[in-house]
């Protein structure tokens, strides 16, 4: 199933999503890496995040006159944000987290509680991501955090493809897959071991 989520995203729309769905995002996408999470949990968010999407990303940007331009904006590894994500979700209620590599059990629980999903964007596809960013609406914490760690508010149009990898029903593609990979590995190990007998 393929659909476009438009921010502010209603809770019901997110709860209807299932692991494996492909979605695109239009509206406001807000970047946050390690430091941005920490800062927002300590001092509050610079804008209301309910219904918006959070992006684990440190973009490459350049300034043309007064306007910021995004050159490349691929996702960073989400696992580092596991420290903050559960509390962050409960407090600010974004409906989508965009990143790569997946997140852990605490986030999975908070997603179900709050009504949000974790969506995977292709690692390395920084140009494709930048192409969907129409405009930088605002940036917060640029002085203190620097370009990669600042909180960038992007206006995006059909940002994606995003694969729903953790849904609001406690399912995680990563968890399902690692069980499957472990089963496959048993057969693979046997194949390697079998050769020694020959």
């Amino acid at each position: 199933m393929e659909r476009v989520l438009v921010t502010p995203i209603p809770e019901g729309e997110v709860r209807a999503l299932r692991v494996g769905d492909v979605v695109y995002l239009s509206g406001l996408l807000v970047t946050a890496r390690d430091e941005a999470h920490r800062t927002m949990l300590e001092k509050g968010a610079p804008l209301p995040l309910e219904g918006l999407a959070i992006f684990h990303c440190g973009p490459v940007v350049s300034k043309k006159g007064e306007e910021w331009q995004v050159v490349a904006a691929g996702p960073t590894t989400s696992a580092r944000m596991e420290l903050f994500a559960a509390e962050f979700l409960r407090r600010f209620k974004p409906r989508v987290i965009v990143g790569k590599g997946g997140m852990g059990e605490q986030t999975l629980q908070a997603l179900a509680e709050v009504g949000a999903v974790y969506a995977h964007f292709t690692g390395g596809a920084g140009v494709l991501a930048a192409q969907a960013i129409q405009r930088v609406r605002e940036v917060h914490g640029l002085e203190e955090l620097g370009i990669p760690e600042a909180i960038w508010v992007f206006e995006v149009e059909r940002f994606g493809p995003l694969v729903v990898a953790m849904d609001a029903h406690g399912r995680s593609l990563y968890k399902d897959l690692s069980a499957q990979v472990e089963r496959n590995m048993e057969a693979i190990r046997a194949r390697i071991r079998g050769e020694v007998k020959r």
Binding site: T122, G124, A125, V127, L128, P161
Partner: peptide
């Protein structure tokens, strides 16, 4: 397939615009 589609599209765009494939 969705991942590979995104990768191939990204590769095309980077080549056309002569911009780095990945931010790293």
């Amino acid at each position: 397939r969705v991942q590979l589609e995104a990768i191939l599209k990204n590769v095309e765009m980077a080549k056309e615009g002569r911009v780095p494939l990945c931010q790293d």
